[in-house]
Design a binder for these strands. Structure first.
Lengths: 181, 181
DNA sequence: GGCAGGTTGTTAGACCTTTTATTACCTGGT
DNA sequence: ACCAGGTAATAAAAGGTCTAACAACCTGCC
């Protein structure tokens, strides 16, 4: 017969225990600190990394890819051929990361690098037919899993969550947030 | 005189352009797909990685650390001495990642590994005095930056966002989401 | 034309994370 | 007492990310 202290039915005992301990500890040590803000970004990070971990381990690794490789193929699929520079902007990563990623995907035959005619420094990344087929297959499974996760919320809550996250993104310039070059 | 097409004052032109292109492309290719769900998780990932990038590049790297090392020191600060196993649970990462991280932090003199008396296999991670001082300094700056970001939202919106993200976290078990062991 | 300064993709070095395998240790049934 | 099976931390290999430095290339100004 479990006592209340055992909390046997708590949904995320580790997470809650940690979040509560954190709030209590920091407000005791720093009475002036912003507990809600801390809780907000701890929660944002936790939610994001939990969801991505599920996507990667249940879909992309079994399919022979990674989360990063999925993002790259998805970007090329929805935006068409891109320079590495533009791909980096769209995906929010460094040019070096794109270079590394493109090398791996090229060696798997999922994309090709084509020299730009207009600019001798530049390349254009294209999906191969294999890459095109691959991203369509993988996206179908990814989107199905996104749907599973989104059942946590009502349609209205989903729109609300998107708009709150967009509000945070839009605030970047106001606070001079560092962004990848 | 800029035309509307130039969209010179758009807040996140790359982000919006990409999100819109994605929605249009996938719904055209997969009429049955869940565009809102896709938008939701693309947005979640973008927001999380943008915020973390700002934290890491504006606070933790200049202080000689990383986002991961901050999280580890923070966990030990708020929860007290922990076994690597427990630290991994609280931070939501693998035991191997904790082992690696603890090694780096130990070599910087920020924590020590103490052999457990109860179990010959186990360790207990402790902050050193240096580590204690360090996390308090760094947390003050981190929390100040969290406050800057949170100004994007009203107090009510912050609570709402936390509760929506918690709802997603709570949904993990219902869909059998993969979690780190 | 020529050259200074900026841009493009790449590489090197440092760190992080995961999965898989390994070693040391504990625990419970015989 | 013993041994099979499980658990704790670690190591190895593969991949990803960043910054900084690089060579190749472009551009604009003289």
């Amino acid at each position: 017969m479990p006592t209340p202290d055992d909390a046997p039915n708590a949904v995320n005992p580790d997470y809650w225990q940690f979040a509560n301990a954190a709030a209590s500890r920091i407000s005791q040590e720093f009475p002036e600190c912003d507990v809600t803000a801390n809780r907000l970004f701890v929660t944002l990070f936790r939610a994001s990394s939990s969801v991505i971990y599920d996507f990667e381990s249940s879909i992309h690794r079994p399919a022979g890819g990674t989360w990063a490789s999925y993002r790259m193929l998805f970007a090329l699929w929805v935006a068409g051929p891109l320079t590495p520079h533009r791909a980096a902007e769209l995906m929010g990563m460094s040019r070096a990361a794109v270079s590394n990623l493109a090398g791996n995907l090229e060696s798997k035959g999922l994309l090709v690098k084509q020299a730009s005619e207009a600019d001798g420094r530049s390349l254009i990344l294209h999906l191969t037919d294999t890459g095109q087929t691959k991203i369509q297959e993988v996206f179908a499974r990814q989107n199905s899993r996104e749907n599973d996760w989104s059942q946590a919320l009502t349609e209205q809550e989903r729109e609300l969550l998107i708009s709150l996250l967009d509000k945070i993104m839009d605030h970047r310039t106001a606070i001079g947030a560092k962004t990848r070059k």
